[in-house]
Design a protein around this nucleic acid. Sequence first.
DNA 1: ACCTGAACACCGTTCAAGT
DNA 2: ACCTGAACACCGTTCAAGT
Lengths: 229, 229
Amino acid sequence: MVKGARGSQRREEVLSRDRIVEVSIELLDQSGEGGLTFRVLSERLATGPGAIYWHVCNKGELLTAACDAMVARTMEECTVGIAPKITIRSLALGMFDAIDSHPWVGSVLASPEGQLPMVRILERLGQAVRALGVSDDAQWAVVGALLSYILGVGGQNAAHGQLARKRGLDRTEFLETVATMWSGLDPDEYPFTRSVAGRLRDHDDRADFLAGIDLILRGIDSPRGLAYP
Amino acid sequence: MVKGARGSQRREEVLSRDRIVEVSIELLDQSGEGGLTFRVLSERLATGPGAIYWHVCNKGELLTAACDAMVARTMEECTVGIAPKITIRSLALGMFDAIDSHPWVGSVLASPEGQLPMVRILERLGQAVRALGVSDDAQWAVVGALLSYILGVGGQNAAHGQLARKRGLDRTEFLETVATMWSGLDPDEYPFTRSVAGRLRDHDDRADFLAGIDLILRGIDSPRGLAYP
DNA sequence: ACCTGAACACCGTTCAAGT
DNA sequence: ACCTGAACACCGTTCAAGT
């Protein structure tokens, strides 16, 4: 009897919701959204599919919980600096990177299931914007703009990354491919896309993203509607 | 023999890729992303699943084609007005409404498969921004900001709509529900979210969206870095 | 060239039965 | 209370066979 040996056959830990979510995240990270399956999940947990349903209602709840855990972790890691602007930049970049390395987080956040984890981001962002001295009336608009910008650009960037990975290319190789494809489009129908193909080749997603955040932040500073009514 | 009668049993039209995409769009609109199935699709087309695979490689291609058709239609409908700004607003609002009434378009655009239909939007937006007289250097950044904003807010809005529908509520009822949930959050942990709960109740997604677009457009006008270096 | 439809490997979910 | 694992209804995809 080798019971107690570090075998993966017999579960030593008792099954718990947290443990299930933890392994779910591992699976999602390893093999994407298609990689999370009740069958391989229960295999890794050395149990049957039914056991998971004792702790979790359905797959949607599992995805939401995984996303929520990921977001909570990211929010924590983005230490609340002294200057609110630094906090905002850190939060934005933190989410950008989180979505980049865990693309499934982006999809869940964009889906109806993602509304709960979203509140975490809303809150942290909101506190920082408020600390910035933005008027009560403008806070909602500013936070909304930041949130949609972060999720929009983050998601788009992650989509690029996934496509690149699927074709076995790294970032620069992939941008190169897309750029040449754009250059090959019909000059009459796609003049603009052709003209920016070169710019695509040597741009930096992360830097562009931060530039956008700074643009929004700079917009907060300016005496709105005074200089340009 | 009732052959030729308007029965749905025997197909009269010959099967074609366009016809398949057309029916796919109907299914997606009727019952969401889960509603598109090779089984019900082949049923509606009065054929077998294998027949569809003659015209289409896989489900991903089907989704891309459906999304592309939808985007192309939207781009056409947003008539190119005389003033570029009017065109931009019309394009933005057109995509917002398209994603709102066809949420699956948003998901496909946000996924790796959506990169092809995306070029259509990029091009139209780009031509308008160029017509606005934006310098070559700034065009890429401006179009990128507009694109991510449109997709970000549009997707978020569609997610809200889907959640509302799933709970059998209309827009105002749903916002009411979310607002009261936000009000019930822990005052210590969620001060900001609680404080904006009221604002959520009586806000207008479409108006807020347009306001954001106008903000970006106004930003183009201002002599950048001159008044506020 | 185009279509048919049975078959395959898989999926989320359920549930009687065990401890 | 918590777990087991067979069973159910479904899914995307394939493919020999027909016309």
